[in-house]
Structures are given as structure tokens and as C-alpha cells.
Computed example of a mutant assay.
Amino acid sequence: MTGPMPLTLASIRQAPKAVLHDHLDGGLRPATVLELAAQCGYDGLPAHDEQALAHWFRDAADSGSLELYLQTFDHTVAVMQTPEGLRRVAREAALDLAADGVVYAEVRFAPEQHLEQGLTLDEVVEHTLQGFREGEALAAAAGHPILVTCLLTAMRHAARSREIAELAIRFRERGVGGFDIAGAEAGFPPSRHLDAFEYMRAKCGYFTIHAGEAFGLPSIHEAVAFCGCDRLGHGVRITDDITDGEGFAPVLGTVAAYVRDKRIPLELCPSSNVQTGAVPSMDKHPFDLLARLRFRVTVNTDNRLMSDTDMSREMLKLVETFGYGWTDLERFTINAMKSAFIPFPDRLRLIDEVIKPGYAVLIG
């Protein structure tokens, strides 16, 4: 082949990809939700055939409100309360991501939400990690190798963040790469969980913080200045600190400049950001502005079920909206890989041996 391969959904699926922000309980297969609900006796599903259930999740998530968006997780979490359910969901997540061309994935979930049938926090993590390892092995056998790292999330409205941070460190050598807080932002600032973040720093642990999605610049400021996060989950509201200067040239405020200059990665999730009302539409998404200003932007799925998406479709939307080419997609992928919560040699190996060669073929 001479010259670049045309950018289509099929060709983008061939590109090696890295995702940093993917929720385990937001990526179930609709058929799996139905089968697990039947097995565990959960009768609260809003639809009872695969297609109707898939449509319900997508439509319910299109609320324009983060709080309403989060309510869709009641159903997925309900069927992830058993060892078998956790292993299956984790195994299928690894397989589905690998089939989409993802070579590195960080998949997060909140162990505290999976205790309703008597599992301990440690057991929840053990079964989930087992599922990821099973999925990795099956994906490799199918010719789609993937490395999955797990992030443990604490719910910001609850009071277990220090406990979950300790859990993340306890499993650090067994497949858990870091810690996160998630949930409704308004009224639950990151500094409320300062003890957990101080613990992670004391243990030299990685952590990201959901900030600047539904709430504005104060959330981001706290996350970076007081909590010391390694990455920002979403962070789209960083644009609140970017104004038009003379000749409409963008001027960065103190927080925005700090985030850019410190190379704090932004885990941007285009489809989800529109669904939750963080941005009004795809063409108004600040992804391109932030990319042009040289922030470390990354492309992510957030919740594949709720957004009816995957990494290839997220990238295609950016291509169609902003006119990106293969070199742009490669840069965003390398941004993500540079920002991964794994040792530097492993990051470098994937960049040099998998990502760059994979894009070289597509670029031609």
C-alpha cells in the first residue's frame, strides 16, 4: 500500500488503541445483563430483550444530566454481585476492547458497590482481576493481545475512599494500577477525600480524579492543587479558565496553564460528555481546542453500553467533526500510553513495538 489508508470505522478498528477511562459497570453486553439478571433473580430491568434493553440504556443516558445518567448504573451493578457475574463481565470487557483494536486498557469500577450478596472487598477485586486475566488469555489466543489494568474507584458521596485507596495499594502487584473517585460532583468536592489522596501519595500510588465534568473549574483546581492527581477524569470544564485575548487568541488562566504545562492528562470522553451535558454537542466539544493548545488530550469511551460506543467510534466521531488524520489519532494514542498507570518500560514497549508500527502501516 502506498499512501494512507482511508479513515473509516473498519480501518480505525485496525489501529492500535489505548483507553484510560472505561467503566466496567458501564460496558456490559445487553445480552449479559439479561442473562445475569435471570441467574441472580434481579427483576428490575426496564426491558427484557437484547435490542430493547440496549436502546433503553442509550436513551436513558441521553438525559443531559450527570445525575440522571448515573441512575442507569443501578441495573448493571445489580447483576454484578456474584463471583461468576464479576468474572464474566470483566472477561467480556477485555474481549470486547481487544476486538476493537485496544492494546492497552484501564478499566475502573467501585468495589464498594458489589457487596450486596456477601462478598468482601478483597473477594470482589480478586474475582474481577481473574476475569480480566481470563479475557486477556482468550483475546491473545484469538490474535488480539491486550493488557488490562484495573483502577479501583471510591464513590464520592460515600465515606469509604480511604478504605478503597488501601485496597488499591494492597492489590498493586496483582493488576490494580491506581485509584479514582467518581459520582455526582456537585456538593462532593475532591478535597472531601483528601485523606485517601494523601495515603496514595504516601504509598507512591497513582490516582486520577473525576473532575470538571458536571462541575466547573473549582473541582479541577481542587483535584490538581490540593489532591495532587496524576490525571483528570474528563476535565472538559478546564475551558472555563481559557478566554479570548487580543485577536481572539486563547489565553490560559492559572489553572489551565498549570494543567497544560505539568502535562496532566485529560481523560476526555466525547460521546459521554455530550450525553451528560458537560458539552452541548460534538461540534462544540473542546477536544480540538485543547489539542491545538497542546494539552495532553486522550480519547476514551467512559461507558460503552450507555453511549453505545467503542474506541473506534469515538475516534471516528473526532475525525468527522474536526478533520483529524492518522497522525492525529496516533498522537492521541501515544498521549494515553505515556499517561498509563504501569511501569515506564511497559509503556515504552507498547509505544515502540505495537502502537508506532501499527500506525505506520495505516499511514503508508
Rank of each mutant, 00 (worst) to 15 (best):
T128K: 03
D180F: 01
A158N: 14
I146N: 03
H144E: 12
A182L: 04
L147C: 09
E136N: 06
G183Q: 12
L138W: 00
T120I: 11
A158D: 14
L167S: 08
Q113W: 01
T149R: 15
F171T: 02
E123L: 05
G175E: 10
I181G: 02
L121I: 12
A141S: 13
T149K: 10
I169Y: 09
A140M: 08
G135P: 05
L167M: 13
G118W: 09
F171H: 11
D122Y: 11
G177Q: 06
E166L: 08
P111K: 07
T128M: 09
A168Q: 03
R160L: 14
A139Q: 10
G178T: 05
L152G: 02
F179V: 03
F171S: 05
E126F: 15
R162H: 03
I164M: 05
R162Q: 07
A141G: 14
G175N: 08
P111G: 08
G135W: 00
H127G: 04
T128F: 09
P111L: 13
E166H: 10
R174D: 14
E173L: 10
L129Y: 10
T153W: 00
L151F: 10
R162K: 10
R133S: 09
R172H: 15
L129W: 11
E126G: 06
G177S: 07
P111C: 07
H114F: 11
L138G: 00
I181R: 06
L152Q: 05
F179C: 03
P111R: 08
R174I: 04
Q130H: 11
H127P: 02
A140N: 05
R156I: 13
C150P: 01
G118K: 13
A141C: 00
T120Q: 12
